[in-house]
Structures are given as C-alpha cells and as structure tokens.
Write a protein that binds this DNA or RNA. Structure first.
Lengths: 213, 213
DNA sequence: CTGCACGCCGATCTTGACCTCCACGGCTGT
DNA sequence: ACAGCCGTGGAGGTCAAGATCGGCGTGCAG
C-alpha cells in the first residue's frame, strides 16, 4: 500500500539525489493516477503523496501530461516485452496461448495496478495517450497474428482480428479477475481462459468445423 | 454526420416543444461527447452544436454529469436489451453465440458512435458512471454465464469468467473493427469472431480435453 | 568560523469551464 | 390590432487546478 514511505522515511525536507527523487516522484504519481485517474488526480495530491512540494514536480517534469506519459511508456513497454517473451518462450502453440494469457494476468497482478494506465486510461482523447495505448494493443496482437497467419493460412486481416479477439479476451478477463478481489486463484482463471482461447483458435485451419456440436 | 441540422433547420431562435427540445439537446450532446469525450467537451460546445444558448441546457438538465448519465443510461439499456434479445432469439447455442457477437457489432455500428460512451468513457472514475458501465458488462456476461453454467455444469464463478471473456472478446473486436474503417465487412468479422468463440466454448463440458498437454 | 551555493517550500497568478443575471422577441386574449 | 408574458440570448461570477516566484536551511570550501 504505502510503498513510498520506505523510500522517504523522513517526513519532509530530505535532500535526495536527482535520479532517486525522480523515481520517487514517479512512484507517487503512479499511486495517485492509479487510484484516481488522470483528471481527478491533482498535482497537489501527487506532491503531497511524495512528501514534497509542487515546484519540485515541475523541476523534474515539464507538466502533468509528461509525467503521465513517462509512466505510461514505462508500463506499455513492460507489457509488450512480457507478451513478446511469452510468445517466444515455446514453439508449442498451446503453451504459447497459455503463456500469453498468463502474461496479461501477471501484468494486471503486478506493477502496483499500473495496468489501469494502459487498459483503463481516462485520457484516451489526448492523441499522445491514444497512440500509445492503441500501439500496445496492435503490437501485441500483431505478434500473435503472425503466428496465427503462419499456422492457419488465414489472411492478415482475419488473423489480426482473431488476434485482437484473443488478446482482448485475455485483457478483459484479467481485469475482471483482479477487480473481483481474486476470488479464483490466478492460475485457475488463467488456465480457464487459455483453454477457452486455445479451443477457439486451435482448429482454425479447417474452414468448417462443428462436427455434431 | 450532422443529423442535428435536420431537427433544427432554422438556424436559431426556434421555439420547440419541451420533449423535442430535450431530445435535440441529447442528440447534440451525444455528438460532442462522442467526438471529444466527457472532459474535453464543454457545455458551450454542446449548446452551440444544438443551436441554443447555455441556459436552456440547464433548464433541461441539472448539470453536465446528469446530461452525460442520461445518454449513458439510454445506450446501456439498448445494449443490454440487444444482448438479451440475441440470447433469447434461439435455443441453438451456436446461433446464440453468433447472434450475441453480432449484437455487439451492431451496437458499435449504429447509435452514432454511442458505444464510445459505454465502452470508452473517460469518466470511469465517477462512481455513477463506473457503476453503470460495470453493471452493463456484468449483466450481459451474467446472462451468458447462465447459459454456460446450465450447459456445461461449470460453477458460477468459472462460467462467469468465461462469459466475461466471450463478451469482452466481442466488444474488443467490434471496437477494433469499427476503428479500422470497416476494412472487413461486418458480416465477415462478426462470423469470424463468433466462430472463434463458439469453437472455444462449445467443447467445455468435458473437464479435460487435451490428450497429453 | 563564515560566506556561498543549491535545492526546497509557502504563497500566488492565471486560465478555463461550469453555472446564473439583465435585455429582447414572438405568442395570446380581447 | 395591441399589450402582456415567457422563453431566449449574451455577458459575467466563482472556483478549482495547473503552473510559478521570493525566503530558508543545509552542507562545504577556504
């Protein structure tokens, strides 16, 4: 909860090296943005959370938007990297699906709720934010679609749509799972969804399936 | 595009019956909210778009939030109704999946982009909005989960997670499809996703599918 | 010991958006 | 036809939040 207190145990007025201060500010900003969203989060709140005054925020970041984008970029890259790693972790497509789905669950589970910035941002009207968020989704789905297209012979457009469906399903279910206070173990939920996805995608080469429902 | 002009062809100063004026304001507000999001939309913009002045807005709605909620409620109910209708349209589960998926595609395709209010709201930090949006997702998923639980014997929690996955997949793919300028015909996209979903869910009764994972 | 430099804080400014007050013009009753 | 009324319009108040300036305390060189 209050991970900041560890980095700034003295209540106020501590002199910090520049980089340490910056990281501390990023941590505080993330907590506030995650808890309140971009619009409801005030720079005063972030400064107070970090135990500093407002001017220091502006000595490290030009403005609220840049502060937000710094955090967003950080976690976007983390998600893309996690999905890439999952896809490259094996050549067995079933395991690939399981690893990728679990990457979403892990992403939602860790990072101190940072998934809210990537998946539930309230600043998607800002072009810079929208670009990043869409780019993440498309990058991940594109990596998946390559595998799909290769193994099914479907066209790129259709493979991409399926990939969006699978990654979107993983994202939505992971968010639902975390929002429900982890009533189901992560393992169980992740496996259930990866099974759903795998059963959906695995028989796609053949045009017409459903042999007696 | 400018559907408002039809309802208000006289440029300014037209006396309108109360309900007609209200509906016209709702239409104008929807266009602005869809195009700009809640925060970036100014009441001045909405008034100007409707061809009236600001006070008349406040004579019909107590404030910006209530105006937004009125629109949101309207379209939330529309989506829930569409999903309910789709689920009740048949007893063949395969067709049910197809109909439900297409309900999402139709919802995204019609209503003048109103899906952005339900699926991409930038006001989810407001409790009233979050409640409504989550309630829609859960209501739809719950209806689906009932069918799943009944036909597979899975527990409610697991059936619900699967239902969230299926409805979420439909929602995400429909949004992606509409955002890509309809490069694929809606029919094709909808069928592709419903096939993916049906292949995923249809063999779920059996606990263990994979022969030697 | 003492003066300097540097980073931090309290207090403030300004902008912009939501929300109301004084004049005008079209409808109704005789 | 004419007077009154009610809804409309432009101009303004208020307030919150992002962005910024004069003191202060700490640590070091000489």
């Amino acid at each position: 909860m209050t991970a900041i207190q560890d980095a700034d145990s003295r209540p106020r007025g501590t002199r910090l090296p520049r980089l340490a201060r910056r990281n501390q500010l990023l941590g505080a900003a993330q907590e506030v943005f995650v808890a309140q969203g971009y619009h409801a989060a005030a720079m005063d709140d972030i400064a107070e959370r970090a135990g500093v005054s407002k001017p220091v925020l502006y000595q490290h970041f030009p403005g609220k938007l840049e502060l937000y984008l710094a955090l967003l970029d950080q976690h976007c890259e983390a998600l893309v990297a996690a999905v890439r790693t999952a896809l490259e972790s094996t050549h067995d497509n079933k395991l690939r699906v399981a690893a990728t789905v679990d990457a979403y669950f892990a992403f939602v589970d860790d990072h101190g709720g940072a998934f809210r910035l990537v998946f539930e941002s309230d600043l998607t009207n800002e072009a810079a934010v929208r670009d990043r968020v869409e780019r993440v989704a498309e990058t991940c789905a594109d990596a998946v679609s390559k595998v799909i297209a290769e193994d099914t012979g479907l066209g790129q457009d259709e493979a991409m749509l399926l990939a969006i469906g699978l990654t979107g399903m993983a994202q939505v279910t992971a968010r639902y799972w975390i929002s429900k206070g982890v009533a189901i173990p992560r393992d169980t939920a992740s496996k259930l969804i990866s099974t759903l996805g795998w059963r959906g995608i695995s028989r796609f080469p053949r045009r017409d399936e459903t042999p007696a429902g």
